[in-house]
């Protein structure tokens, strides 16, 4: 489904991604973790071409993202993305947030888009908030609307960029619950997160990154029981110890 093949990326002289490769199968959930500044976010932003790569190749569902002749909007419309800071459109209600790109990108009718939007808001438990503007919603609610907005495009895969990092602790679980359900329904997901409980619950594999390199890719139980790299051990001991 998603193939990342030896990509490299520089910001000026600084290399943020060093020869990263990762294959994600259809229906698989992969958690990417690692210390901040390790390149995790940059890596998943490369998957839908929000960040261009300097070398290497990425394909999603047969489309070559890194090929300059690929029409990126077309690719992106099929890959859902959820951001750390939600990024709902502040000038539109929750419902309109879900409708805009269904209408403008997928050319669905207003009626159809609205029906789908209501369906998805219901699914994330926010049916009664449809007409509210984002600033009237809590962080957890905003993030659930953002997930629903991505799902409204019927994506073949979902990317999550630290979806719970900006949330107050009491709101994290409501967002994770939606994500767990999505994973159980067979959505292909790459999730950058520090939520190790989530990783244990639904991820088939865990990717550990540090210094712009993928240090380790391991099946979830193996990663938590006996990570092979020293850095992963150190990282785990730091975030699991309390």
């Amino acid at each position: 489904m998603i193939e990342i093949d030896s990509i490299n990326k520089w910001y000026g002289d600084f290399q943020v991604l060093k020869n990263c490769s990762l294959r994600v199968e259809k229906g698989e959930v992969v958690v990417v973790c690692g210390p901040s500044g390790s390149g995790k976010s940059t890596l998943i932003k490369c998957v839908n071409g929000l960040e261009p790569v300097d070398s290497g190749r990425i394909t999603v569902n047969g489309m070559v993202v890194t090929d300059p002749s690929t029409r990126l909007p077309k690719v992106r419309a099929q890959i859902g993305m959820v951001f750390q800071h939600f990024e709902l459109f502040p000038h539109k209600t929750a419902l309109e947030n879900l409708m805009l790109t269904q209408i403008k990108v997928l050319r669905r009718s207003r009626h159809e888009a609205e029906r789908k939007a209501h369906q998805l808001l219901e699914r994330v438990g926010l049916a009664d908030q449809a007409d509210k503007y984002p600033n009237a919603l809590s962080g957890g609610q905003q993030q659930r609307v953002a997930i629903a907005r991505a799902l409204a495009m019927d994506p073949v895969a979902m990317l999550f960029d630290e979806p719970t990092s900006a949330l107050d602790p009491e709101m994290i679980s409501e967002v994770l619950d939606v994500m767990v359900e999505l994973a159980r329904e067979g959505m292909t997901m790459i999730v950058v997160t520090h939520e190790m409980g989530f990783a244990r619950k639904v991820a088939q594999r865990v990717v550990f990154m540090d210094g712009g390199m993928i240090q380790e890719i391991a099946p979830t139980p193996v990663f938590f029981e006996s990570p092979s790299s020293e850095r992963a051990k150190l990282f785990l001991s730091k975030i699991l110890s309390h």
Binding site: K45, L50, R76, A77, F83, F89, K104
Partner: peptide
């Protein structure tokens, strides 16, 4: 913000849209 721009792009909007 850059995040807003990215959100629009990630949903498949063209630059103009």
């Amino acid at each position: 913000s850059r995040g807003q721009i990215n959100a629009g792009l990630a949903l498949g909007l063209t630059w103009r849209q």
